[in-house]
């Protein structure tokens, strides 16, 4: 009887430890795959990461703008976007010029207002997206090409 209780305590502890390890691992993975170092591991994303590094948002993770903030939507968005990007990168074809999809534009815009709510609290914003005025925020896109791109990426 006593012996049995001891075993089950060890088992519970072990399961708990595994749970903590898995949770920590998942958390670490989630965080790591939000960051420019990870996103920039595909050459196609070099331009995006390069311009991100030069920008005022360089200390933020890519996915602080590029995925929804709440946990559940973030998980589903990340999974879908990651799978799509992997497909495009391997079996699919990449466009000559890469543009954000409409859903990404909406997600990014929500994240603008998420962090900058207080700034715009007392004004009515009339353009559809914040970046319609803050035009350099989308990856310094009016810089000459030589400052953003090179061949082979």
């Amino acid at each position: 009887m006593k012996r049995k209780e001891g075993i089950s305590l060890t088992a519970v502890l072990a399961i708990l430890l595994v749970g903590v390890a898995l949770t920590a691992g998942a958390g670490f993975t989630m965080k790591a795959t939000d960051q420019a170092e990870f996103c920039g591991s595909c050459h196609l994303m070099y331009e995006a990461v390069r311009t991100h590094q030069q920008s005022v948002h360089s200390q933020l993770d890519c996915n602080e703008c590029h995925t929804p903030d709440p946990f559940i939507p973030k998980m589903t968005f990340k999974t879908y976007a990651g799978m799509k990007d992997m497909y495009k990168n391997t079996l699919g074809n990449v466009y000559d010029v890469i543009h954000a999809t409409d859903s990404t534009k909406e997600v990014v815009n929500d994240n603008c207002t998420r962090c900058h709510t207080m700034t715009t609290l007392n004004v009515e914003t009339v353009k559809p997206h914040c970046t319609d005025c803050h035009r350099q925020v989308p990856h310094l896109r009016t810089l000459p090409i030589a400052q953003r791109r090179v061949a082979d990426e």
Partner: peptide, 23 residues
């Protein structure tokens, strides 16, 4: 005047194989 070069418009990057860019 904004530093946009001839090549920026006349030699845009294209991905002929769907992947790597060339001018």
């Amino acid at each position: 005047a904004a530093g946009v070069s001839c090549a920026d418009c006349h030699m845009p990057y294209v991905r002929l194989d769907g992947k790597k860019k060339i001018s």
